[in-house]
């Protein structure tokens, strides 16, 4: 579900990249002001953590579908990566004052 909201974030980055939106859209003062908000922090944590677990689950299934029968190992690796990514996201968001 969170992947539905990722499209906006990719689009804004892309529009800044091709010059259709000014770089002030993603300016340091604007973005750090936004991320300072606790509700935005919570939103961003969901935006990162949920797709990480979603992708881990899809990748686990795809590897099994490709014929690699090591589901326990693959599942462990996939979900641990998602956990590490989510903890990293939490640390980053708490690190932005």
């Amino acid at each position: 579900m969170a992947a539905l909201l990722v499209t906006v974030h990719i689009s804004v980055n892309l529009l800044v990249g091709v010059g259709l939106l000014g770089t002030d859209t993603l300016s340091y003062s604007r973005l750090s002001g936004l991320v300072a908000n606790p509700i935005v922090k919570l939103y961003l944590l969901a935006l990162f953590a949920l797709p990480f677990f979603h992708a881990a689950h899809r990748l686990r299934g795809t590897i099994r579908d490709l014929g690699l029968h090591a589901d326990r190992v693959v599942g462990f690796l996939c979900y641990s990566t998602a956990i590490v990514g989510s903890v990293w996201a939490l640390a980053v968001l708490l690190g932005v004052p």
Binding site: A3, P51, H54, A55, L59, T62
Partner: peptide, 12 residues
């Protein structure tokens, strides 16, 4: 299935 992994890479 793999598009979700691409999205995760963007999020990184």
């Amino acid at each position: 299935e793999l598009s979700s992994v691409v999205v995760a890479l963007f999020l990184v």
